[in-house]
């Protein structure tokens, strides 16, 4: 570690949906690529401690009320989410917020890519 950066690996080794797990201090952190962007989140689901960053990455399924008596229109939005494989608790990758209750928050970390290498920036 230098300058508060924890090395994850070459950016080219990640496809969308891939993850890598690194130790940041005493915490296990998952680095996930979605839509070409990297996100880092605590790899510990606030529900039961499951490995949330090892879960499926997909766009969030949304529903819209389009009129009285109409079927709720469901569609996949822009937001990418990750779901804990133990029970399905799901979080926005941008914010770490639970998609069903914004009071539930997964700790997030900054990610930087320098010279093609992905790092978690601990801010230290």
């Amino acid at each position: 570690m230098s300058d508060g950066l924890v090395e994850v690996g070459p950016a080219t080794e990640f496809e969308d949906g891939d993850h890598a797990i690194v130790e940041v201090g005493r915490a296990e952190v998952g680095v996930v690529r979605a839509d070409g962007e990297f996100y880092a989140l605590r790899n510990q689901c606030p529900h039961d401690g499951g490995p949330v960053c090892k879960g499926i990455v997909q766009r969030e399924l949304l529903g819209e009320f389009t009129g009285t008596g109409e079927r709720v229109e469901q569609y996949y939005g822009e937001e990418c989410i990750i779901s804990c494989p133990w029970h399905g608790w799901s979080f926005e990758l941008e914010t770490g917020t639970h998609i069903g209750d914004e009071r539930i928050q997964l700790p997030m970390y900054d990610v930087v890519v320098e010279d093609g290498i992905v790092y978690v920036d601990t801010g230290e």
Binding site: G55, S83, P85, W86, G88
Partner: peptide, 9 residues
């Protein structure tokens, strides 16, 4: 399995 979200290791 909630459409792929839940898996059992």
């Amino acid at each position: 399995q909630n459409y792929g979200k839940v898996v059992r290791e």
